[in-house]
C-alpha cells in the first residue's frame, strides 16, 4: 500500500516537474521570438517544412470529411424535408469544429511528430550542444522559427481544410444527391456568421497551432537523447497534442458559443 502511494507520489511529482519545465521552455521560446522574427528566411524554410508538407494530407482529408458530412447530413435532413439546409450543416460543422480540430490532429500527426523527431535527433547527435558552443542559441536559431511557423500555418491549414470540405459536401449534396444549388449556398450564407463562426474558428485554430507547436517542440527539446527516447517523445507528442486539442476545443466552444 505504501509502495503504491509512493509510486503515485513520484509520478505526480514527475508530472508537475515536467509541466514546470514545459512552461519555462515556453517562456524562453517566447523570449527568443523577436530574434527569430528578424530572420524571415528561417521562417520561410520552416513554413515549408510545417505547412507545405502538411497541405496534401489536409486537402485530401478535408475533401473526404466534407463528402461524408454531405452524405450523412443529407440522409438525416431528408427525413425532415430540410435537405435545403445541407449547406448550413456542412459549413457550420466544418468552420466551427471539424476544420480547426481535425486539421490540428492531422498537424500533430504529420508536422508535430516530425518536429519532435527532428529536434530530438538534433539533441541526440549533439547538434544543439554544438550550436551552443558556437555561441548560437538553439532556441533562437532552431526552436523559435519552428514555433512561429506552426502558429502561422495552423489557421491557414484549417481554412483550407474547411473550404475543401465545403466543396466536398457541395459535390456530394448538389452534384450527386440533387440538392438545389442556390438553396445550398444561400442558406449557408444566411446562417453562417462571419464573426460568430468564421472568426471564432480562426481563433480556435490559432490556439491549437500554439499548443501543438509548443508540445511538439518541447517534447523534442526535452527528449531523452537516444533513439529510443526520441521515439517515445514522438509518440507522446501525438497523444498529448490530441488530448490537449480536444480538451481545449471543449473549453473554447463553451466560451465562444455559450
Amino acid at each position: 500500500m505504501t509502495a503504491w502511494l509512493q509510486r503515485l507520489g513520484r509520478r505526480g511529482i514527475g508530472f508537475f516537474e515536467r509541466l514546470g519545465r514545459g512552461h519555462l521552455f515556453l517562456l524562453r521560446v517566447l523570449a527568443a521570438l523577436p530574434a527569430a522574427l528578424a530572420r524571415p528566411r528561417l521562417l520561410v524554410a520552416q513554413l515549408h517544412a510545417v505547412g507545405v508538407r502538411t497541405l496534401l494530407i489536409i486537402g485530401v482529408s478535408g475533401l473526404f470529411v466534407g463528402m461524408v458530412l454531405g452524405l450523412q447530413g443529407y440522409n438525416t435532413l431528408v427525413d425532415f424535408g430540410a435537405e435545403e439546409s445541407l449547406g448550413v450543416v456542412v459549413a457550420l460543422s466544418l468552420v466551427r469544429e471539424l476544420g480547426p480540430v481535425v486539421s490540428a490532429l492531422l498537424f500533430a500527426g504529420r508536422a508535430g511528430s516530425a518536429l519532435t523527431a527532428e529536434i530530438g535527433l538534433m539533441k541526440a547527435t549533439e547538434q544543439l550542444s554544438g550550436m551552443e558552443m558556437m555561441a548560437v542559441d538553439p532556441l533562437e536559431r532552431v526552436v523559435a522559427p519552428r514555433f512561429v511557423a506552426g502558429l502561422v500555418a495552423m489557421p491557414l491549414l484549417a481554412a483550407i481544410f474547411s473550404v475543401v470540405g465545403v466543396y466536398g459536401g457541395w459535390f456530394v449534396g448538389v452534384g450527386l444527391l440533387g440538392v438545389d444549388d442556390g438553396a445550398f449556398w444561400s442558406q449557408m450564407q444566411a446562417q453562417v456568421d462571419l464573426h460568430d463562426d468564421v472568426y471564432n474558428g480562426v481563433v480556435k485554430s490559432l490556439v491549437f497551432g500554439f499548443v501543438a507547436s509548443w508540445i511538439a517542440l518541447f517534447e523534442g527539446y526535452d527528449a531523452v537523447p537516444t533513439s529510443e527516447g526520441v521515439g517515445r517523445a514522438t509518440t507522446r507528442t501525438v497523444v498529448h497534442t490530441a488530448l490537449a486539442v480536444l480538451g481545449l476545443d471543449f473549453v473554447l466552444t463553451a466560451l465562444m458559443f455559450e
Partner: peptide, 12 residues
Amino acid sequence: FVAAGLGALFVL
C-alpha cells in the same frame, strides 16, 4: 501555400 490559406479565409 500562404496564398492558398489566405484565399481559403477569403472564401470562408
